[in-house]
């Protein structure tokens, strides 16, 4: 699982980065890296079997008072 993930990330980087570097699109490269970092942060722990908190839960808690009306 984790191997697959690393291959996937390597593939994505190989796909995008050379072109961005060649065209000197540094801003895009930074955004790309940021997104990829978020993606890694979310996916690698999951692949390792660590359970991350689900943001839906937080939203559910946030809207709980309104949501009660719909039950």
């Amino acid at each position: 699982m984790i191997v697959l993930l690393i291959i996937l990330f390597a593939g994505i980087i190989l796909l995008e980065v050379p072109g961005l570097v060649k065209k000197k699109m540094w801003r895009e490269l930074a955004a790309f890296a940021a997104y990829l970092a978020i993606g890694m942060a979310l996916s690698i722990p999951q692949a390792l079997g660590i359970r991350l908190p689900n943001p839906s839960k937080a939203i559910e808690a946030l809207f709980k008072p309104v949501a009660e009306l719909l039950k």
């Binding site: 996937l8 990330f9 994505i12 796909l15 995008e16 072109g19 961005l20 699109m25 895009e28 490269l29 955004a31 790309f32 997104y35 990829l36 978020i38 993606g39 890694m40 979310l42 996916s43 999951q46 991350l52 689900n54 943001p55 839906s56």
Partner: peptide, 19 residues
Amino acid sequence: RPLVAPVGVVLVALAALCR
């Protein structure tokens, strides 16, 4: 376009969070 692939990764990771 450079964002498409990493956004996809985030998407799948977010979706996988739901138990």
